[in-house]
Design a protein around this nucleic acid. Sequence first.
DNA 1: GGGCACACGTGAGGC
DNA 2: TGCCTCACGTGTGCC
Lengths: 240, 240
Amino acid sequence: MMDNSFYSEYWPQTTDLNQDSPFLHPQVPNINSFQLHNYPESFQGETASASRSHSEAEKRRRDRINAQLSTLRKLIPTSEKMDKAALLGSVVDHVKDLKGKTTEISKVLNTPTDIDEVTIEHLNEEENKGSASESKRKDNSVILKASFCCDDRPELFSELQRAIKSLKLTVAEADITSLGGRIKGIFLLCLSENSAKDVCMHSLKQSLRVVLCGIAISPSTSNYRIKSKRQRFFLPAQFS
Amino acid sequence: MMDNSFYSEYWPQTTDLNQDSPFLHPQVPNINSFQLHNYPESFQGETASASRSHSEAEKRRRDRINAQLSTLRKLIPTSEKMDKAALLGSVVDHVKDLKGKTTEISKVLNTPTDIDEVTIEHLNEEENKGSASESKRKDNSVILKASFCCDDRPELFSELQRAIKSLKLTVAEADITSLGGRIKGIFLLCLSENSAKDVCMHSLKQSLRVVLCGIAISPSTSNYRIKSKRQRFFLPAQFS
DNA sequence: GGGCACACGTGAGGC
DNA sequence: TGCCTCACGTGTGCC
């Protein structure tokens, strides 16, 4: 229940608080400039200190908001000398635009998501209908389609190659995309004919799944993502 | 110089203004609820009406800002029940993240920019050093690298093909990317040997430039971008 | 009850 | 002048 005009008789208008806030927009006028905590003796009462802490807290809140606004202004080109509403408006446009572009790219590109996953698929299963043993007699070539999506890290490639080699599989085709610290891979894996006749399809797929899950969804002992903000990007490429 | 406590004796606290602002965050408390324009008779003076229009304008300003904040909240997942500063903070993160991803992609992909441009380059110029006539005797094959970047529109492809055909050029390779209503193309264009011996390289390049500029930097009679927000994306592909 | 987040009206500078 | 935008302190609801 205080009247500002009453305060302004007591508070010195000399010091400029705004100069202590480097994130403030230059447009900000130097108004109501006074040193906080510099209250007249007659206001050192209980309600006065409550009111002071309230206004100080409110100033901190305003400063937090304005600081974010200021960093947003740096991120958006030509947003200097826009007012707050216009700035936020172009932020909205920017976010929509960027979102549209990235989803547009994701549609046609093999783009990693935020969800860890591993899938295994038997590509030539349909043409080999019937029992497993029978199908092998018809066509001994085995092609597995495997995909994974997980956090990216430097050791991932060698781990993958070791895992694939250990299952006596060879890579026919690979499409690997690393983006924003995440990585997604799609592999076409072949089992040679003479190996294929000795192996149980079901347990091979099971083993592959176990091995890939161990690589992809492992408890993140490697905190690569935290250590390095550097992001890698690979075009769809051959992976020998 | 008015004391709120003084007003609050006069202003009815019954009607809820916040319910008229559908974009307000649900967290907003129903405070200072009163009907604007409902001033006591004693305040119908000149300064009172100025003050009223001021406070009304200020409310409109706040509403504009909060409306943008509200649409931002819809764009950012899990931003419900964040306060304003936190919301803006995650908007900052989001923008940085999206920007990083798109620039990362642009680095390896042939991504269109916002600037219209056409470039023509003579690829095998270096190996054919010397005068133009001499170079043709050494190697009659002519390869031009042409690129353009402009607003995308449906007719662009056929226009391009017609233009290239009219210059008796054939497309050896094409990398075309359409993204966010913009399109960028890079072409390797061949001139057959028997055509090459009749043609002046300089005027061919000039003609190609003129034709491409006519397509790319034409006064935008087609307002495709406004008519359709639909965006196309093409992977690097052959263009026969 | 203290802290927090919000909307509000106000004074002031800029155009 | 009048209107716009901003920072400010305050009243208030919620935890």
